[in-house]
């Protein structure tokens, strides 16, 4: 007797339903240009959400990722602008900028992770703190305004966001690769298994000689690195950063993880679910913009309903488990 597990497939069914609804409401929805746009915008949150899946699955949380992205975008732009007189307007400068972004992400993740695992402070508290710190730093660096990338560099850098293989742009390709790697890591490697074990009971993991603190730290560093990667793809889109860059990204990422079926209390992680969660959230946004059935201003309300519904479904699953 094999019933369809709606808890497992629920998000996927919801996504398919959304695509059908979208296509019925407006044929332009399925046009490559629109899909390309939706997917590329999803890529930032998507990259971060893949990392967030690991952090949440091991029983942690990171509220700082939105501010972190803004801060990293800020220092990356400043670094590249500062390099223009020395190295000139060329790909070398941009590559150095990308390295700054990557290093910044890894360092920020390491900082969060070290405070959580070494100083043993609650992840919620640590990342609430660093969220404020990064946000405030980027506002300060931009003096309350906007940090803009040198216009020559901007022209050179633009294709990283806007072009790719046909309509499948680089952010989409990057997101797809990271998602596949992430799913593989979660399901098939020791790291993934340890992440799940720590999230379901860290004491059992410790007694099983799992490097609990090391794995936790690694999950925050991984997330930081993915924030860095997301920033590398984000900077060429607008060529600027400000105090309002990446606002609420952390909540969108967490929401995507939860919608995808990863439990907030940790223990079970589904990277493919997270990808579905990200797509659901951005498609709702897109459909509301394309169809004038419901005001796009209600986007947040609809997303909220979906998040709560997803959690209700999780709860029903747990009740069946206990039987």
């Amino acid at each position: 007797m094999r019933r369809i597990d709606f808890h497992l497939l629920g998000p996927l069914i919801a996504l398919i339903a959304l695509i059908i609804i979208g296509a019925l409401l407006n044929p332009a929805f399925l046009a490559p240009a629109n899909l390309s746009n939706v997917l590329a915008r999803s890529a930032f949150i998507g990259l971060i959400a893949v990392g967030m899946t690991f952090v949440i699955t091991q029983g942690g949380l990171d509220l700082s990722v939105g501010s972190m992205a803004a801060f990293i975008a800020g220092i990356t732009i400043m670094a590249m602008n500062a390099l223009v007189p020395i190295t000139g307007v060329n790909w070398g400068t941009i590559i150095i900028g990308m390295m700054v972004a990557m290093a910044g992400g890894l360092a920020a993740g390491l900082f969060n992770g070290a405070l959580i695992t070494r100083a043993r402070i609650e992840p919620f508290i640590v990342t609430l703190g660093t969220m404020g710190i990064y946000r405030s730093l980027v506002t300060w660096l931009s003096d309350g305004g906007t940090l803009s990338l040198d216009s020559g560099l901007r022209t050179l850098y633009r294709p990283v966001y806007f072009s790719g293989i046909g309509w499948i742009t680089w952010p989409i390709i990057t997101f797809a690769i990271v998602a596949i790697l992430g799913e593989w890591m979660m399901r098939h490697t020791r790291f993934g298994r340890h992440v799940e074990a720590i999230g379901s009971n860290d004491r059992v993991a410790r007694y099983s000689a799992v490097d609990v603190e090391g794995v936790r730290l690694a999950s925050y560093v991984l997330l930081g690195g993915l924030v860095g990667l997301a920033t590398i793809l984000y900077v060429p889109r607008l060529g600027s950063a400000s105090g309002s860059t990446g606002v609420l990204w952390e909540l969108e990422a967490i929401a995507a993880v939860i919608i995808g079926g990863t439990m907030l209390k940790g223990g079970t992680g589904r990277v493919w679910g997270t990808v579905v969660g990200v797509l659901i959230l951005s498609m709702i946004d897109n459909i509301l913009n394309l169809a004038d059935l419901v005001s796009p201003y209600l986007n947040g309300a609809i997303q909220g309903v979906i998040i709560v519904l997803a959690v209700v479904l999780q709860r029903e699953k747990r009740a069946t488990d206990n039987r």
Binding site: A197, S200, R203, V204, Y207, D321
Partner: peptide, 9 residues
């Protein structure tokens, strides 16, 4: 139950 086995796994 608390230190030996992951009961849900």
């Amino acid at each position: 139950k608390e230190a030996g086995l992951l009961l849900t796994k």
